[in-house]
Amino acid sequence: PQNLTRTNFEHLERLSNRSRYVARSCKEIRDRYNEQEDGLYYLTTANGMVYQTFCDMTTAGGGWTLVASVHENSINGRCTVGDRWSSQQGNNLNLPDGDGNWSNRNTFGTAEGATSDDFKNPGYYDIKAEDMSVWHVPNNFPLDHWNLAAILRYHTNNRFLRLYGGNLFQLFKHYPVRYNIGSCSNRGPAVPIVYDHGDRETTRMFYGLKPRKEFEPGFITFRAINNERAAMAICSGVKPIAGCNTEHYCIGGGGYFYPDQCGDFPSFDYDSLGMGQGWS
């Protein structure tokens, strides 16, 4: 501390004050302690497990708790190491749930590292929430640049999570992310979104040329299923409406995708990477 400048010390002091808050979510910290600054905070689960995560205290009234990040470490991988949100056991018919991380209490990664690798904290299964927000942030950006760097940010505002147990852990218990759980028509809920950065048209343009005929932007959709009966967890920003080739625009999954599209961003690279040609 002796070599800290005065300003720096004040900042550190304020940060250390945050460690005194006891709350189960960023919303509680905002409501109970009137904290208005984005940044890292400590939270506690019902059983008293302490963890640190990022709080968005500014978007649409603030109080948003970061609970997970889905990061594609290798677009060429096929359910290989790093594909925690589908499977790390290869494309395996005998493992329909893959790693099962959408509906278990496993945690991994760190808040500061959430744009460099997958992240999941106890808030994912512990917090009872009403709405979700989603940020698409370019890989490897540091935490204090996330908001500005994000290519897409939106949130729901109709408290839909109340209908599905209050969090994604419970929602995906109702709608398992499992190969062969059903057909394309057995899709989970699609919820309208409010944009914080970007709009329906920018959302559309982020996905491939061919997928644009298959979805309607302006929604977040859970547990889509494609033609080959593979399940995906989240279609971010869109609602599938036709075609059922959801592996090109929905993320996460179970443990098997026919013929060979397994992975966290299942078949986003079908027509190789580039300027959105074909299905890519």
Binding site: S25, C26, K27, D56, G63, W64, T65, L66, V67, A68, S69, V70, H71, E72, I75, A114, T115, S116, G123, I127, A129, E130, D131, M132, S133, V134, W135, H136, V137, P138, N139, W146, I151, L152, H155, L161, N167, L168, M205, F206, Y207, G208, P211, I234, S236, H248, Y249, I251, F265, F268, D269, L273, G274, M275, G276, S280
Partner: peptide, 15 residues
């Protein structure tokens, strides 16, 4: 999907 989408992490928040 576009390069931007493929090379961006998807951060999920609750409130």
């Amino acid at each position: 999907a576009s390069k931007e989408m493929t090379e961006a992490a998807v951060l999920l928040f609750y409130r």
